[in-house]
Design a protein around this nucleic acid. Structure first.
Length: 428
DNA sequence: TGAAATGTTGGGGCG
DNA sequence: ACGCCCCAACATTTC
């Protein structure tokens, strides 16, 4: 049984998928696989909504393939072990997958490539989840950018030269013909989550600049999880955009900016990008952190956001900034705590963006907000949810005595934050 | 992609 | 008509 193997990872679609379309041209029938990686899953609960989403996305692909006599082969366990099993079972000629830039994934893929090379198997990997990857947008001296504005300028100038061609529709007849059952959630030891990924909504493109700051209005695209798991291609999103929404495009460039930051400076994973802030003394009060997580700080704008996150796996962008600022500046809790909580809850969690944006809010990032920028949770409410539609939606008890008093007084907290940062910088 | 403090300007009321 | 004061609105600086 001679095959080419295509490995689905975070590109869970058949359409406009670079490595897949190359695999289908490899000259051998393509056996598509997916591996539920225990190294990653061990950190998650068995009903994590992201697992449910991955499972359902694979199921959809599998249904399409079955019409053509094929199916996806699903593994669960250690990826390298899965590959060794595959090598025992099939005569593998070529292997195709798309690039993944996260530290763990890089290491995993390097090990696999070594293993394949040792067995004399060709492997090919492709840029697919970004327009420009790690070393494609560099300064004239060949070094990576660490300032967004400069990165963006270069990105745009290169983008004008680049054609974003759509891949032709895949020929499903070229998949390897075989039949094995698609495992149930229970067989994989998962349970279905009540929290669901929503379909994306591209109709907001073009008006994003007007609606993006109003959390009560549904002017978000809900693209995050789809870009994270590749159920839509970034090229397709960009094509729809056609530069008509500069602000939205900017957000997509931030995504690639943070990806290349993580790639070039992997230490940001657990360290401040700017060492200047290493000596800030965080208060890290567990009970205050818990109140923040539960949406019980007594500040409606903050609490509404945290409850939306907990109940749905989403949080409006404006509110993400305000809640992050509140945790870091008002409560003086280490940004890594907030980063970890968002990583656990956000359906669109992406290591590079989550880390980059938390460091931005903390002022510790490469191109971050200045440390003295402290969001006023009351002003934010007045500015962006004056009618209180958003906060009432997420805090039903808001006008009852059940709703708590503010955990801390704003002006005093602000002064304390400025003082703490100043002291920390001096210690350095 | 902030907020608060401080500075400046200009219009209106009033003696 | 003029100076003076008040204050809102806007601009600039500072954290």
């Amino acid at each position: 049984m001679t095959v080419t193997i295509y490995w689905f990872r975070r590109d869970l679609r058949l359409e406009d998928n670079l490595a897949l379309s190359h695999a289908l041209k490899s000259g051998f029938p393509v056996l598509p696989i997916f591996i539920f990686d225990d190294n990653i899953l061990d950190e998650l609960s068995e009903d994590d909504p992201r697992i449910t989403f991955i499972y359902e996305s694979l199921e959809k692909i599998d249904i399409k393939l079955r019409k053509y006599g094929s199916c996806i082969k699903i593994f669960k366990g250690n990826p390298l072990q899965a590959w060794k099993d595959l090598m025992d079972e099939y005569d593998i000629k070529k292997v195709y997958f798309n690039h993944d830039y996260e530290p763990y994934a890089k290491e995993r893929d390097n090990q696999l490539t070594e293993l394949l090379t040792a067995k004399g198997i060709e492997s090919h990997s492709f840029k697919d989840q970004v327009i420009f990857e790690k070393n494609e947008v560099l300064k004239s001296d060949g070094k990576p950018y660490s300032i967004f504005t400069h990165y963006k300028r270069k990105w745009l100038s290169q983008f004008k030269k680049e054609l974003v061609d759509q891949q032709e529709a895949p020929d499903l007849n070229l998949f390897f013909k075989y039949h094995i059952s698609f495992p149930s959630l229970e067989e994989l030891h998962f349970t279905e989550s009540a929290i669901k990924v929503r379909p994306y909504n591209l109709s907001i493109l073009g008006n994003y600049v007007f609606g993006r700051d109003v959390p009560s209005e549904d002017s978000t695209s809900y693209l995050g999880p789809h870009l994270r798991f590749g159920t839509i291609s970034i090229r397709m999103v960009i094509r729809q955009l056609r530069l008509k929404d500069d602000i939205f495009l900017s957000e997509l460039i931030w995504r690639e900016f943070f990806m290349q930051i993580l790639y070039h400076f992997p230490r940001v994973v657990d360290q401040n990008c700017r060492a200047k802030y290493d000596n800030i003394v965080w208060l890290n009060k567990e009970e205050e952190f818990e109140k923040w997580c539960q949406g019980k700080t007594g500040y409606p704008f903050i609490d509404a956001g945290m409850r939306q996150l907990k109940q749905t796996g989403y949080m409006h962008n404006r509110v993400r900034m305000a809640t992050a600022s509140f945790l870091i500046k008002h409560l003086l809790i280490d940004w890594r705590w907030g980063e970890a909580y968002f990583a656990q809850k956000l359906l669109d969690y992406e290591l590079s963006s989550n880390n980059g944006n938390w460091q931005w809010a903390a002022g510790t990032g490469c191109d971050a907000a200045p440390y003295f920028r402290v969001f006023n949770p009351i002003t934010q409410l007045l500015k962006f949810d004056k009618e209180m539609l958003y906060v009432r939606k997420w805090i039903p008890e808001i006008e009852t005595p059940e709703y708590p008093e503010p955990i801390i007084e704003h002006a005093a907290a602000r002064a304390r934050a400025l003082e703490t940062y100043k002291t920390g910088i001096k210690l350095k």
